[in-house]
Simulated scan of single mutants.
Amino acid sequence: MDVVTKVFVGLHIIGIASLLGGFLTQMKPMSAGTARYTPAMLHGALTMLVTGIALVGLNQAQDHSLDNVKLGVKLGILVVILGLVYVKRDEEKVEKPLFLAVGLLTMVNIFIALLWT
């Protein structure tokens, strides 16, 4: 069971990398006002959602104690990210504040995972 959990943690990190990497590749177009949400960002957010839910289930199955408030905050932030990326995924340009919001929320989610104990 421990190996399965580690595989899902790895996939979760890949999802984060895809979302944040997609954001970072659009930094130059963002300064020109032509940034858009890439498919990698949508797929990364979906990967994070699915693997995050799987990780919660695997940890509960092993009777590990979980911080439900932390998980709820992280899920809420991810739902906002996913909503923004999904709704605006087909637009040629995304407004700078909305685009920045996804990057900042992604980084906030990372720091919550690392620093909230």
Rank of each mutant, 00 (worst) to 15 (best):
residue 66 L to T: 04
residue 77 I to G: 15
residue 100 L to F: 10
residue 61 A to W: 01
residue 77 I to M: 05
residue 83 G to M: 12
residue 113 A to P: 03
residue 82 L to V: 08
residue 103 G to R: 00
residue 113 A to E: 01
residue 78 L to W: 11
residue 100 L to N: 11
residue 87 V to D: 14
residue 65 S to A: 07
residue 84 L to M: 15
residue 84 L to C: 06
residue 76 G to I: 10
residue 99 F to G: 03
residue 114 L to I: 12
residue 102 V to E: 05
residue 67 D to R: 03
residue 97 P to W: 11
residue 93 K to I: 14
residue 66 L to D: 03
residue 76 G to R: 06
residue 75 L to D: 08
residue 97 P to R: 05
residue 77 I to W: 05
residue 107 M to E: 07
residue 108 V to A: 15
residue 110 I to M: 14
residue 73 V to E: 08
residue 108 V to Y: 00
residue 93 K to H: 10
residue 82 L to I: 02
residue 73 V to W: 02
residue 62 Q to D: 11
residue 113 A to N: 00
residue 97 P to G: 09
residue 113 A to C: 02
residue 104 L to G: 08
residue 93 K to V: 15
residue 81 I to T: 01
residue 83 G to W: 10
residue 70 K to D: 01
residue 104 L to N: 04
residue 96 K to L: 14
residue 64 H to W: 08
residue 112 I to C: 04
residue 89 R to T: 12
residue 63 D to L: 01
residue 96 K to S: 15
residue 65 S to Y: 12
residue 76 G to M: 07
residue 106 T to K: 00
residue 76 G to W: 10
residue 111 F to R: 05
residue 111 F to S: 05
residue 91 E to V: 12
residue 88 K to C: 08
residue 72 G to N: 07
residue 85 V to E: 04
residue 72 G to R: 02
residue 106 T to E: 09
residue 112 I to E: 05
residue 62 Q to L: 13
residue 88 K to W: 13
residue 63 D to I: 00
residue 86 Y to D: 00
residue 115 L to G: 02
residue 80 V to H: 00
residue 89 R to H: 15
residue 70 K to G: 03
residue 90 D to E: 15
residue 81 I to M: 09
residue 90 D to Q: 12
residue 104 L to K: 02
residue 68 N to V: 04
residue 103 G to I: 06
